[in-house]
C-alpha cells in the first residue's frame, strides 16, 4: 500500500477528513522552508503538497506567485526541492508528500532522471498543473510505472463527459479545484461543493480533496464534513509573506496548520 493509500484508509477508519497543506519549496528560503516542512506532521498536516517553484505559475494568484519569486530569488531549484524531501524523510516515514508545480522545470531536468530521483527521495505523488490527460505520455504514465501517484485536478468546467478521461489514470486522490480561477481567489459556495462531491462520487472511489479559497479553521471544518480532504495553500503562504523573520514565518505557518487541523478533526464530531 502506498503512503497515500494508507493515510486515507487510516483517516476513513477515524471518520475524519485529511488536512492537506501546500507550501512552496524554498519559501522564504531553504532552511526556513525545511523547518516548516519538518514541523508540518506534528502540527497536524495529514498530507503535504510541496510546490516546485517556477517563474511563470500561470494558474496561481498573487500570493503563490510571490512565494515562487521569493524561493527562486533565494536560489531554490528542482535539485534543492528534491534534497529538501530527502532531508524531510530522514525523520518522517508516514506522512505522504506530493510535489506540485508546472511541467517545464521537470522537462528540463529530464523526465526519467526526475522520476528516479523523486522516488529515491521519498516523494509519493505528483500534481502537475499544466499536464492534462491529453499529455499522459509526457510524465503521468512513466511516473505511475515507477510507483508515483499522479493526482489530477478536476474543476467546475470538467463536465461529466470529460470526467472519465481525467480520472482514468488518476491515483492517490482527486483534487477538486472548487472555483474556476487562480489560487487564493474567492471560494465556492457550500452548495456548489456538495453538488460537486456528489457528481465526482459517481465517477470515482478515490479520496476527494477540495481546494481553492479555504482559509480558516471554520471554513475547513465545513468542507471536512463533505469531502475526504481539505487543501489549504495561499492562507499558509500569507503567513510567510507577512512574517518579519524566518522564525516568525515558521511559527506563523505551523500555528495556522494546528488551528486548521483542529477544525478538520472536530468537524464530524
Amino acid at each position: 500500500m502506498s503512503r497515500l493509500q494508507s493515510r486515507f484508509a487510516e483517516l476513513k477508519e477515524q471518520n475524519r477528513a485529511a488536512l492537506v497543506t501546500f507550501v512552496t519549496g524554498g519559501d522564504p528560503n531553504y532552511d526556513a522552508s525545511l523547518a516548516i516542512l519538518k514541523g508540518l506532521p506534528a502540527a497536524g498536516a495529514d498530507v503535504i503538497e510541496l510546490g516546485m517553484p517556477f517563474t511563470d505559475p500561470m494558474a496561481d494568484g498573487p500570493a503563490i506567485q510571490l512565494a515562487n519569486i521569493r524561493a527562486l530569488d533565494n536560489g531554490q531549484d528542482l535539485e534543492k526541492t528534491l534534497q529538501m524531501v530527502r532531508e524531510f524523510r530522514e525523520g518522517e516515514q508516514v506522512t505522504p508528500l506530493v510535489l506540485m508545480g508546472y511541467f517545464n522545470p521537470i522537462h528540463k531536468y529530464g523526465v526519467e532522471r526526475f522520476i528516479a530521483e523523486a522516488v529515491a527521495s521519498g516523494v509519493d505523488g505528483l500534481i502537475i498543473v499544466d499536464l492534462p490527460p491529453e499529455h499522459n505520455a509526457d510524465l503521468c504514465d512513466p511516473a505511475q510505472v515507477a510507483g508515483l501517484d499522479f493526482i489530477r485536478l478536476t474543476t467546475p468546467t470538467t463536465d461529466d463527459k470529460r470526467l472519465p478521461k481525467v480520472l482514468n489514470g488518476s491515483s492517490g486522490f482527486v483534487y477538486y479545484v472548487s472555483v474556476a480561477g487562480v489560487t487564493g481567489a474567492g471560494s465556492a459556495t457550500l452548495e456548489h461543493v456538495e453538488q460537486a462531491v456528489t457528481r465526482l462520487r459517481r465517477h470515482t472511489d478515490l479520496p476527494l480533496c477540495i481546494g481553492f479559497g479555504i482559509r480558516t479553521p471554520e471554513h475547513a471544518a465545513t468542507i471536512a464534513r463533505l469531502a475526504d480532504g481539505v487543501v489549504v495553500g495561499s492562507a499558509l503562504i500569507d503567513q510567510i509573506a507577512s512574517a518579519e523573520n524566518d522564525e516568525a514565518a515558521v511559527d506563523g505557518v505551523l500555528t495556522l496548520v494546528a488551528a486548521l487541523a483542529e477544525g478538520v478533526r472536530n468537524a464530524r464530531a
Partner: peptide, 20 residues
Amino acid sequence: ANGLFGSFGGQYVAETLMPL
C-alpha cells in the same frame, strides 16, 4: 489531431481551460 507539429505544440494548460 493532438495539435502537434512533430514534437512541438500540444495543449499544456490547466484542466479548467481544457474544455474551453
